[in-house]
Amino acid sequence: MKKVGVVVFPGSNCDYDVYNVIKKVLKLDAEYIWHKETALRHYDAIVLPGGFSFGDHLRAGAVARFSPVMQEVINFANIGKPVIGICNGFQVLLEANLLPGALITNKHLRFLCRDTFLKVKNNKTLFTSNYKENEIIKMPIAHYTGNYFANEDTYKQLLDTNSIVFQYSNTNGDISDDTNPNGSAHNIAGIINEKGNVLGMMPHPERACEAILGSDTGIGVFSSMLGV
């Protein structure tokens, strides 16, 4: 049975949500990994969950990036195994240079906690193969530092490598300033690395995996990754 490792930093708070999705919804195996642990080779995938690791001090994700587990997460990614960073986990992946660009303060200086619609821009990835191309999915955001920034060279590289996976949209699939909650460059909500095995996204798929929670369209991220 496939086993997912959920990294727990001091201040992580979406770790249980991810664990619950893997164990209870997908009925696969999951384990917590304390940030000081370094044995990851026996996992099939690693998730860096959302939260406020180390209180978001300095910059969101900047301190967690140097936790002992992170060197092993980098090695894990470098051998081609799947890694997802959600929200604070995305911030950690950027700080660790596993993904390009940076996340800065939301454009309107507000903490945003609400549902968003995303367009699946690229469904030919390890994390989105269970979605249709341009499918509109619904999941919440909950962040203050979610404004994705990339300089023009990085943006061009993201386009050339088809690395933009999710964009903020509306139910019609329109991508515009009106459908951009936080000021992210080109409405970017999630990207993958060039190799295609590391995904970072600000919205929370783990909070949208059961209809009772308002949406179950987030499950595709985990089911695609785990081949179920």
Binding site: V63, F66, E95, G101, A102
Partner: peptide
């Protein structure tokens, strides 16, 4: 370089 600043921004 490593910690106090993020060279991207």
């Amino acid at each position: 370089d490593k910690l106090l600043s993020n060279p991207v921004i």
